[in-house]
Simulated scan of single mutants.
Amino acid sequence: MARVVVLDYGSGNLRSAERALQRVGAHVEVTADAKAAREADGLVVPGVGAYAACMEGLNSVRGARIIGERLAGGRPVLGICVGMQILFERGIEHGVLTEGCGEWPGTVERLEAPIVPHMGWNTVRAPEGSQLFAGLDKDTRFYFVHSYGVRRWELEPAEHIRPPLVTWADHAGDEFVAAVENGPLWATQFHPEKSGDAGAQLLRNWLTTLS
């Protein structure tokens, strides 16, 4: 049974994530303990609310360092919602710029759509070869709740390095990054823990990478 830590840094649907992971067969611990977070088979970084508040909470438990140490060792990390957003370089909310973890270049900014927040079920466009969306068809819907997102993918391709797989979604004509698969670092803008059977399949797919 895979051992998963849901990082408790004061933000996120901790118990929802815990229950969803338990239902698909993981042994789950919700904790801010750095040793447990580093040593678990998989680390889940949730997040809800404001980007700046999430980064403040993450920094309070040295979360960016924990994430970096895991990735340096090739150990899987899954970011969810704002837990995905803080993996990028920066977020801008109400004119305030906050530095993120910087695992990917790019800016989290307000969606440019007539109706914000983007709330409810939506399809995504996953690239060919995606492990995250294996077993799910193109009409599968996932549950989103957000007003901000990454609207431009800024990581330039590099020779001899496999590029990340980027999944996109559209809200009222505005495209944004819905998920990323980048070696041991995966992330979703939507909430798999609130996405029913589809979310459960996605979490199972992530668990297969933990062995």
Rank of each mutant, 00 (worst) to 15 (best):
V5M: 08
D174A: 15
G63D: 06
R162Y: 05
I92A: 15
L78I: 02
T208Y: 06
A169D: 11
E93C: 05
P192T: 01
T209E: 06
E56C: 08
G173Y: 07
A26C: 00
P192R: 03
K194A: 04
A187D: 07
V82M: 09
M55S: 11
V150Y: 11
A17W: 00
P192S: 05
L58F: 11
Q189R: 07
E56G: 14
Q201S: 10
N205L: 11
F88K: 04
P76M: 10
L165I: 02
D41Y: 02
I80T: 08
G83V: 03
Q85V: 10
I67T: 01
I80R: 07
G106K: 11
A126Y: 03
V24C: 01
L185Q: 07
G79R: 06
A169K: 13
R110L: 11
G25E: 00
I66G: 13
D174E: 13
C81S: 10
V150P: 14
A34M: 07
L155N: 15
V177S: 15
V150N: 13
S147G: 15
H146W: 06
P105N: 13
Q201M: 09
A200E: 00
L136H: 07
S11T: 07
F190H: 06
T123P: 01
R15Q: 06
G196W: 03
A20H: 00
R125D: 11
P114C: 14
T140C: 15
V77D: 12
L203H: 00
P76T: 06
P184V: 11
G12V: 01
A179H: 09
V61F: 13
R162K: 13
T209F: 05
A178F: 05
E159I: 03
P184M: 15
Y143K: 08
R151Q: 09
L207I: 01
E156F: 08
I115D: 14
